[in-house]
Design a protein around this nucleic acid. Structure first.
Lengths: 146, 146
DNA sequence: CTTACTGCAAATCTTTTGCAACGTC
DNA sequence: GACGTTGCAAAAGATTTGCAGTAAG
């Protein structure tokens, strides 16, 4: 049961953010590219196609808001730019398999880490609220071509 | 059995890199600050104390080399700058606990993920060679002050 | 002595910010 | 109509690069 476009707009309104066309367009871009991990620049490229007037700064400002509202989730794959995906996905504990040869990013799901989190809490007094797990290696295709 | 300073210099030589004073000084900085996760700027600050002539560009170039030789390991904690630590530490599967209140970074060790890696390999045909696990939450101190 | 390495400054790239005009509520 | 939001351009911060001089092997 993933949030709908409208429910996310409502979430914005609740926090006294205005529902501007730009914000709707940017949010829609994530619905249209759900599988991907988009950078600000990429999102700008996407929304500009139909709305050339939208500025890159607005994209950055909108992403910041959406991330603060836990609608989006920031991730970094080490290529120097911050990427964003639906935060809802994070709840399902999906993680990333990053191919160090072709750069492809795949996902895999797992709930094994929850037990690890409680263990950490006991052991170190650290209260875990979120985690990020990334695996680096070679994808199926790149293993053959090596 | 962690590598010695000399063994790392040897590793540089083997790859036909020259052992310059600058490279030795930067490498030494990591031995002197083993516990920390240093950014290029921080390393520059450290080495400049005794060697003011060393340029920031040299630090960046040296870190790049050391990372490519797997002497250092790049990590990003989401504060916009790349950080470096001894790669050897990574072999011991230590991971990071990042306090989202005060920014403090702690470490914890675990070998639980190896079984997860083999499971992934079977399940997805992805050949894992490395992984990064980060937990975000509140450290002991910040839990009380919240 | 050759070729890699350094320091500096300029360039690049991502992200942030100031400000006047604009649009939502 | 008020005040949050936008677009633009300029600023800021991290990292990279060009180049002439320097030094390791």
């Amino acid at each position: 049961m993933r949030p709908t476009f409208n429910s996310l707009c409502a979430k914005l309104q609740q926090k006294a953010y205005k529902i501007t066309p730009q914000r709707q367009i940017i949010l829609k871009a994530f619905f249209d590219h759900e599988q991907r991990h988009l950078s600000a620049e990429e999102i700008h490229g996407i929304v500009k196609q139909n709305h050339p007037e939208i500025g890159l700064a607005t994209v950055y400002r909108t992403l910041e808001i959406l991330a603060n509202l836990d609608i989006l989730h920031k991730i970094e794959f080490g290529d120097g730019r911050t990427r964003y995906e639906f935060a809802e996905a994070e709840v399902h504990h999906h993680h990333h398999l990053i191919c160090i040869n072709c750069g492809k990013v795949m996902e895999f799901n797992d709930d094994l880490l929850e037990s690890l989190e409680t263990w950490i809490a006991k052991k170190t007094n650290f209260l875990v609220v979120d985690h990020q797990l990334k695996f680096y290696g070679y994808c199926k295709d790149c293993q053959c071509r090596e």
